[in-house]
Amino acid sequence: MLELLLALWPLFALIVAGYYLRRLDFPNEAFWPGAERLNYFILFPALLFSSLATAPLDNPALPRLALAVMLGLGLAWLALLLLRRLRGWRAARFGAFTQGALRFNTYLGLAAVASLFGQEGLTLAALMLALMVPTVNVLSVWSLTAERGVSARGLLLPILKNPLILACLGGALVNLGGLGLPGGSDRLLSLLAAASLPLGLLCVGAALKPEQLGGEIPALAGNSLLRLLAMPLLAWAVARGLQLPTMESTVLLLFFALPTAPTAYVLTRQLGGDSQLMAGLITLQTLLAAATLPLLLTLLAA
């Protein structure tokens, strides 16, 4: 437990620092949107691209890991559809609940994996993200537009334009083509990647909105329990059922135990979902994850 806390507390310290820096208006309000864009479109894709470009894609464990990821997401999606039918959620609300349950804070996840397992863990996480990011994005868009319908173009376009997905595809193609990262490009990408995780965590803290926690306490608490407790228990069961090795099980569990993604708020607003509920879910889950993440990893990953 102590070793895990030593690995994770600096990550949450950066989140807290980002929260207070923005409240103190430092460096200024205009800095944070630009920092988020820089990280989302340049720095973070560099990390994913370089990790996949050099990953051992012939690893025989990859099909089993892919099965674990898709099985876990598939079971969670079926449970959400059942809840929607039972509770009669409209698309605006269902979309927020879906993202609260299925989406994950990629910045925090990769920073945690890097602290726990180093480059080997980052490579494994990048391979998982290549599967999880497009799948979760499709389900998120569909859930927000379920009542009015959405064309195949409307469903796929946000995914094809997603820089994280493009970086994963580009890195995999470079890897499969045997091109490598010649001429110092590996060093350039590693410098960009090194800046992505601390800046991403600061931006996560800057995006927190505690003022959004005033209403809908039962909804916020229920969805947070689903994301921070039920999802990691599901991942643990899947990992045990498929007999995944220790590191793969831990990384799978970690990504299913992460709080939802701050970018879910943007998608919810763009597609007419309940953005106030989404902001509350992002804030509450991120705050609670400081306690639940080390506890669950200690109990379930042992």
Rank of each mutant, 00 (worst) to 15 (best):
R93P: 01
R84E: 06
L75D: 09
A30P: 03
F49I: 10
A96Q: 06
E36S: 13
L65E: 13
P45K: 02
Q99R: 01
N137G: 07
V136P: 03
G109T: 12
R103N: 02
L43W: 00
V141C: 05
L166M: 13
A76V: 14
L166G: 10
A91W: 06
L164Y: 02
L129E: 01
A126F: 06
M132F: 09
W32K: 12
L110T: 05
A126S: 12
L131D: 02
K161H: 08
A114H: 13
V136I: 15
Y107C: 15
Q119T: 15
F97Q: 10
V69G: 13
A46H: 03
W142I: 13
L43G: 04
L80E: 09
L102Y: 05
L86M: 14
A55C: 04
A101R: 03
R148S: 07
S115N: 08
V138A: 15
L160A: 14
E36D: 11
L155R: 05
A91Q: 07
P63M: 06
W142K: 13
P33W: 00
G109I: 15
G72N: 15
A55W: 03
L62D: 14
A167N: 03
G154F: 00
A96E: 06
L129Y: 02
L139Y: 00
L47M: 10
L67P: 06
V150E: 11
L82Q: 08
A35T: 13
G34L: 12
R85C: 05
L62T: 14
L52S: 08
A167H: 04
A35H: 03
L155K: 06
A35W: 01
R84P: 02
A53K: 06
T135N: 05
R90Y: 03
L75C: 14
W142A: 15
A101N: 02
F97W: 11
I165E: 01
L160F: 06
M128G: 10
V136Q: 02
Y107P: 11
L65V: 13
L62E: 13
R85M: 03
P45D: 04
L57V: 15
A53T: 12
Q99L: 08
L157D: 09
P158D: 08
S151M: 02
A30Q: 13
N105S: 08
L48Y: 01
G149R: 13
R148F: 00
G34K: 11
G149M: 12
V113L: 12
F94A: 11
G100P: 04
D58H: 11
G118D: 09
L73N: 08
R84L: 05
L155Q: 09
N162L: 12
F49M: 07
L47Y: 09
G95L: 11
Q119P: 10
F44Y: 05
P45G: 09
G149Y: 07
V133C: 03
L81N: 13
L129I: 09
A126T: 07
L67I: 04
N39Y: 01
F104H: 04
V138H: 02
F117V: 07
Y40C: 13
S115H: 10
I165P: 00
T98C: 14
G109D: 06
W32A: 14
R37N: 15
F41S: 09
L116C: 10
L164R: 00
A125Y: 04
T135D: 07
I165W: 00
P163W: 03
A61L: 11
L122D: 04
L144F: 04
F49K: 02
A66S: 15
P33Y: 00
F41D: 07
T98W: 10
L122P: 03
I159F: 00
S143P: 02
L78R: 07
M128F: 11
L67T: 09
L139G: 00
